[in-house]
Simulated scan of single mutants.
Amino acid sequence: MITGLGAAVFQQVIGSNSVIFYAPTIFTDVGWGVIAALLAHIGIGVINVAVTVVAMLLMDKVDRKKMLIFGASSMGLSLIVMYTMFDLPFNDIK
Score class of each variant (00 low, 15 high):
Ala55Thr: 11
Gly15Ala: 11
Arg64Thr: 03
Leu5Asp: 06
Phe27Leu: 13
Ile14Pro: 00
Ile26Ser: 05
Lys65Ala: 03
Lys65Tyr: 04
Lys61Gln: 12
Met59Gln: 13
Val9Lys: 02
Ala37Met: 10
Ile35Tyr: 10
His41Tyr: 07
Gln12Thr: 03
Val53His: 07
Thr28Glu: 11
Val9Met: 10
Ala7Glu: 00
Met56Glu: 09
Ala23Lys: 05
Ile42Pro: 06
Ser18Glu: 07
Ile44Glu: 04
Val19Ile: 15
Trp32Ala: 13
Gly4Val: 10
Lys65Leu: 02
Ile44Met: 12
Met59Trp: 11
Met59Arg: 12
Lys66Gly: 02
Tyr22Asp: 03
Asn17Lys: 01
Ala50Leu: 13
Gly43Tyr: 14
Ser18Leu: 15
Ala36Ser: 15
Ile35Asp: 14
Leu57His: 14
Met67His: 04
Thr52Trp: 06
Asp29Val: 02
Thr25Ser: 11
Val9His: 03
Gln11Phe: 12
Lys61Asp: 08
Phe21His: 11
Leu39Val: 10
Trp32Ile: 05
Thr25Gly: 07
Ile26Tyr: 10
Met67Thr: 01
Gly15Arg: 06
Leu5Ser: 08
Gly45Gln: 12
Gly4Cys: 06
Val54Ile: 15
Phe27His: 02
His41Ser: 10
Val46Met: 14
Asn48Phe: 09
Ala50Trp: 12
Ile42Met: 14
Val13Cys: 11
Ile2Leu: 07
Thr3Cys: 01
Asn17Phe: 02
Arg64His: 01
Lys66Gln: 03
His41Arg: 01
Lys61Val: 11
Phe27Arg: 07
Phe10Met: 11
Val30Ile: 15
Val13Asn: 03
Val9Thr: 13
Pro24Ala: 08
Phe21Pro: 05
Leu38Glu: 14
Ile42Asn: 09
Val19Asn: 04
Ile47Pro: 01
Gly31Asp: 04
